[in-house]
Nucleic acid binder design. Sequence first.
DNA 1: ACTGTCGTTTAACACGTGTTAATAAACTCT
DNA 2: AGAGTTTATTAACACGTGTTAAACGACAGT
Lengths: 350, 350
Amino acid sequence: MNNKRVTSFDVAELAGVSRSTVSFVFSEDKQSRIRPETRQKVREAAEKLGYYPNASARALASNQSNTVGLIMTRSPRYIASDNFLPQIIGGLLDIVKQEQLGLLIEWVEPGQQIQTYLQLTRAKHIDGMIILTPRFDDPGLTALEQIDIPCVLMGQIPECNLPYVDIDNRASAKLAVDYLIELGHRQIACITNAATAYSSASQRLEGYRDALKAADIAIDESLIRMADFDAASGYTQMKDLLREYPRFSAIFVASDNVALGALAAIHDAGLSVPEDISLVGFDDIPEAAFYHPKLTTVHTPAKEIAEESCHLLMQLLKGEIPYSRTINIPTQLIIRDSARMIERSHITTN
Amino acid sequence: MNNKRVTSFDVAELAGVSRSTVSFVFSEDKQSRIRPETRQKVREAAEKLGYYPNASARALASNQSNTVGLIMTRSPRYIASDNFLPQIIGGLLDIVKQEQLGLLIEWVEPGQQIQTYLQLTRAKHIDGMIILTPRFDDPGLTALEQIDIPCVLMGQIPECNLPYVDIDNRASAKLAVDYLIELGHRQIACITNAATAYSSASQRLEGYRDALKAADIAIDESLIRMADFDAASGYTQMKDLLREYPRFSAIFVASDNVALGALAAIHDAGLSVPEDISLVGFDDIPEAAFYHPKLTTVHTPAKEIAEESCHLLMQLLKGEIPYSRTINIPTQLIIRDSARMIERSHITTN
DNA sequence: ACTGTCGTTTAACACGTGTTAATAAACTCT
DNA sequence: AGAGTTTATTAACACGTGTTAAACGACAGT
């Protein structure tokens, strides 16, 4: 077996030029420096020998790993049932490939944040990172603000000055609940997408409150439940909530994943959506259009979020000053079949 | 800002030892060489300076990137709606973290396989790779057989000698269809999970054929459709298939994702599952237990597959000879509510 | 005190590339 | 043809670590 490693020296030798010339040919930026015929010669030699520039050596010499990190703030157990993730990864992979970058996925344990962020960046394993669904209680974020590491949050943390790409969770949630109110509902429950330590969860909950307040509806805290990303938690919370039924005729579930579980619980209780309970979800994951009933939900353009995050990060690590360090992607209420006008018989008075 | 990079030299200086000693302390293997007090001194100095060994330099010197690659054979568009992926990624992240490895995700375009595989391994960006759902028509696989790169397939390719971890797709599919036959069904349709270029798809289809043959049921090719991973394709194929209704009373859908779309199509046609049509899925994704009706399906232990793949790969790249280069993970039919005994009225004769 | 042994530490080279500053070559203009 | 100018190429150093083989020091035994 020909295990001898092919280096730029070998290519240089075969092409009859110096190693530096080879290096110039393979760093696409300043190709102008090399005469076309020489470049051609080098390319052919490289092809013939099966030369691929060593990534580590390159990273070491240029101080750029050409890799970005996707940091997940949840444990693998929750990652496993996150149907929003494939959209994000798909979007990132698309851009990252165009830009010839690598994508490193990492999961950070609570309590290890600072350690992990520093490790990744100082060790230059990655040039920059995208933090998915950041948490309020993440002390690593303030550490990242201090040192100057290219970093983009997918999701917003209020007092945090790091660049972010996000939707307006609060306004979008209000949109969803406004719609339910428009349909005549006044007893509206809520199941969040996650614990309120996650910014998106608390913001969506705020949006729910905003809508009720704007319509002069008193907020009944007993109609609010916190879920945990997945359908199973939605099932549990909904089951619990159904003990209060019929004190509500509609529900806002701040995640389609969670909503799937909620739907199952409602059905198991012998009720139906939207006949007995109207439901509006959030995220518009690809499956939402095929649930039973088809979910009325807030469309979150995952691909666009992924793309914008990636673009923003790349501007930062090229040293360009971006047009804006905070990007808000517009959402949209998608009306399908899971919410309808309230039935007369459901109207009760407090 | 203190942007000066901290190197092992700085640590050595502060600890009053040589750079080599620092290096030995940080390569955990042969700690026995260093006296405990010295090690302690070095550790403290490193802590104080905030030293993190440079990953690239390390990779270059040791010829190990300590990173494994997860290679996806689909385009981002299909990756985005793959609900099986989070489970795989979750499982991998878990192990990879324990082993202090990085996880690099890459997507390979058809036609670029050889190029990409060589690039990744020769450039030493990664030490080894896991190829997710390999395809029959992937010329890169034979290339990988030639050169000696640590590599594990998640899924099996018949004439390919690369190590793999997989379920027995064919037998598992037969299990599902056997169950439908047991319930009295004889007109059984099939929608695959993907194009037959994907080994899992063609194997599951074979299992379907096996079951029918074993029960002396003639195979009606017009009852077979190919889907494309996602619910949307399942919807389309099912809609098409329903023109043949009632020439079938049951259907085997070789992916829960696709089955969700199929369920929606059935419902849109004014029919119900399992009253009019019995359905058995495949994969048992976490959501399957919450679909309407709850899906009877073949449980595929994704986490276990991910873990075994990772373990196998790590044995390979440590140079250990694994107990076996091919691992088959057992599956199990999970009986829920989407299939039932055939109604008398549905029995027709060919 | 001298030799030999063992356990620690270090000097020196290797890893494969990027990049600057200097050199060589080609080309222009009077 | 020679001076000046641009363009193409190269030599030499830098990047930060792993690792081998040699140097060192302590310690025991005669």
